[in-house]
């Protein structure tokens, strides 16, 4: 009755061979294709470096003015604009200006990529149930798989640096915008869609004049979530050589520098709060028509 006590498994040797085989062939493949793949991501790399340098080279007063303008235009709130500027000044005063610029450039590019990739995928999912049922498990996987597990093949392929970091951030930050785009479009009132059909709308007309505008609040909630998740990845991305506020945190963890960790950690939190409030307020303003003045 031995076989009952022990779960029947592939023999140790077979298992080792299997792992070795896969590892070997992946390594082989990455060696032969690594350069090509790296070349493919080159434009992205240059853009990232360019944006980072631009932000660092821009005189700090200009950045502060831009921050104030961005916060005010997004939220239409003086308090929020003022708060953002003060936070930026404090972060700069404590010597984290350059790291903050690097982080902002990474977050911006990651968010843009997620929007550019995520919204079309979300639209496709909302249109075809099959696409939805195919992509949903992939999104589940992306959100739950331990980050280091997919960090490894990315590093094997692309080495360490900004681009693999960016890819890692995007993998983690992409699902919410896809999910919420899909959800938002599916939640659009059926009667309104029927009206659009009854007047002879084509799919394209319906998408751009009805579905997307009405789904915007949800899509925007997705953008907001994506920004938040990208910021949450900053520290982990620094493990594969991404510069920014995450790097000092990592050093602090390794060397028990309490204050360094706290300062940079709080800077990340401050950025997160600013991005979150501004984008949320903006999203709320997008649906102002829904809360029209009460009649009667």
């Amino acid at each position: 009755m031995d076989w009952l006590a022990e779960f029947p498994s592939l023999g140790k040797r077979d298992l080792r061979d299997l792992k070795k085989g896969i590892d070997g062939s992946f390594r082989e493949w990455s060696r032969s294709n690594g350069d090509a793949i790296e070349a493919f991501f080159d434009p992205l790399y240059f853009f990232l470096v360019w944006l980072e340098k631009l932000l660092i080279a821009t005189p700090w007063p200009i950045i502060l003015v831009l921050v104030a303008a961005f916060a005010y235009l997004g939220s239409r709130s003086w308090q929020l604009a003022l708060g953002s500027v003060v936070s930026f000044m404090l972060i700069g005063y404590f010597g984290m200006w350059k790291d903050m610029m690097a982080t902002i450039s990474l977050i911006s590019v990651a968010t843009l990529i997620c929007i550019a990739v995520g919204i079309p995928i979300g639209i496709l999912m909302s249109r075809y149930d099959r696409v939805q049922s195919a992509i949903t498990p992939i999104l589940d996987l992306m959100q739950t798989i331990p980050i280091f597990v997919y960090l490894l093949p990315v590093v094997m392929l692309l080495g360490i640096g900004r681009v693999p970091g960016l890819i890692a951030v995007c993998v983690y930050a992409l699902p919410p915008i896809i999910r919420l785009t899909n959800l938002g479009i599916r939640l659009v009132d059926k009667e309104i869609l029927e009206a659009a059909d009854a007047f002879g709308s084509s799919y394209r007309q319906k998408l751009f004049s009805v579905q997307i505008p009405l789904a915007l609040p949800n899509i925007f909630a997705g953008v907001n979530q994506t920004i938040m998740m990208a910021l949450a990845m900053v520290v982990i991305a620094s493990m594969i050589g991404v510069k920014g506020l995450g790097m000092p945190v990592l050093q602090a963890v390794q060397n028990q520098y309490l204050t360094l960790g706290l300062m940079n950690g709080l800077a990340i939190v401050a950025l997160a709060i600013i991005f979150d409030r501004v984008s949320q307020r903006y999203g709320q303003r997008l649906q102002a028509h829904r809360y029209g003045k009460e009649h009667e």
Partner: peptide, 22 residues
Amino acid sequence: QLREFRRKKTSMVFQKFALLPH
């Protein structure tokens, strides 16, 4: 053809109005 028919030949009014809120 159906789309063209709906654009030119028929129009519809709905119980719950079905206006575009935005």
